[in-house]
């Protein structure tokens, strides 16, 4: 199963296996990583699953839809060029090894 690394606000790195099709937000939550709030449950409506893409196969990321783009403007932590909503990224083999940093403010 493909793996993702969550770089947490407290400095820890958490590497987790996700099933194909699971979003990076769900993957965090189901594995007890509470730094990602995922308040709306994955509907691109709360911006509390904001992450920065830090490394790995970034070329394999899905492109951003308008809803995600608009909601990222509302993120509590500063929006950067590598900002994404983790609920909008579904895991697949090509994304194995992706690294995301979780901001402190949600």
């Amino acid at each position: 199963m493909p793996r993702v690394t969550y770089r947490l606000p407290d400095g820890r790195d958490c590497e987790v296996e996700l099933s194909n099709g699971q979003s990076l937000m769900e993957g965090a939550i189901r594995n007890g990583i509470g730094a990602i709030l995922g308040e709306c449950g994955g509907s691109a409506m709360c911006a509390t699953c904001h992450v920065y893409i830090e490394g790995g196969p970034v070329g394999a990321l899905p492109s951003m839809c308008d809803d995600e783009d608009a909601m990222l403007e509302e993120a509590a932590a500063e929006r950067l060029g590598n900002s994404r909503l983790s609920c909008q990224i579904r895991m697949n083999a090509a994304l194995d090894g992706i690294v995301v940093r979780v901001p402190e403010e949600m």
Binding site: R30, G32, G34, I36
Partner: peptide, 11 residues
Amino acid sequence: ENPAMIPAAIN
């Protein structure tokens, strides 16, 4: 056991 599931419980 997993409080990160709070949003799912609310939904």
